[in-house]
């Protein structure tokens, strides 16, 4: 997985609360067999009108946020079902960091499995942030190492994160990557413990 240590990116704001995973990726797109390629369907029902045309009102369709990789979102982001597709879609669209006052539990966990950093910024700091990202000056730097969000004029906000998960993102490790650190144990097990019956079990 691509490590995330310090990320500078364009910010898009989605000032809505309780955005659930069905809005992030509607269920008609869950039948795919891939885990990539969900980007075009992200927020589908908001991005497109019923007749299939682009909804010019929708926040992410504004010209100035094209290419954004940081999403400033509302309270309780990612609630609803446990579908990992929601994170796959956000990541595939290009988001690497999601900043919200709070996240739904499973969604929060799923982010780390897919190299996406969820930053919890408490309500007041979040509302201080938003006005900075109205015009074209939409850049922000997220420094995971220092646990800080830097806004261009030097304003810095810090955030909390579990050290274990922080390390996972910094090293680009997913769950499998973590287990592979035990590779030596697995090999030893195979050679020593399993070997006696390996030959018969094939």
């Amino acid at each position: 997985m691509e490590p995330l240590v310090r990320h500078k990116g364009k910010v898009a704001c989605l000032n809505r609360v309780n955005v659930d995973t069905d809005q992030v990726i509607p269920k008609q797109f869950l039948k795919r067999i891939e885990r990539s390629g969900y980007g075009p369907f992200l927020f589908y029902d908001w991005r497109y009108l019923e007749n299939g045309e682009v909804n010019s009102e929708f926040e992410l369709n504004q010209p100035e946020v094209q290419g954004a990789s940081i999403l400033l979102a509302g309270d309780n982001f990612g609630c609803g079902s446990s579908r990992e597709h929601a994170v796959w879609a956000l990541r595939d669209y290009g988001f690497r960091v999601i900043i919200a006052p709070s996240f739904a539990d499973i969604f929060y966990n799923n982010c780390f499995k897919n190299g996406v950093l969820p930053v919890t910024l408490k309500g007041d700091s979040w509302s201080r942030l938003e006005p900075y990202f109205k015009g074209n000056e939409r850049w922000m730097t997220v420094d995971l190492e220092r646990q800080e969000v830097e806004i261009c004029d030097g304003m810095v906000l810090s955030f909390e994160i579990d050290p274990h998960r922080k390390q996972m993102l910094i090293e680009g490790l997913d769950d499998i990557g973590l287990t592979l650190r035990y590779q030596r144990f697995i090999e030893e097990y195979e050679q020593e413990q399993r070997a006696p019956y390996q030959k018969v079990y094939g």
């Binding site: 499995k113 769950d175 592979l180 697995i186």
Partner: peptide, 14 residues
């Protein structure tokens, strides 16, 4: 499914 991937890659499971 994520455990399927984990077993495929590591032959182990937590």
């Amino acid at each position: 499914t994520s455990e399927v991937e984990h077993v495929l890659a590591t032959q182990c499971l937590w």
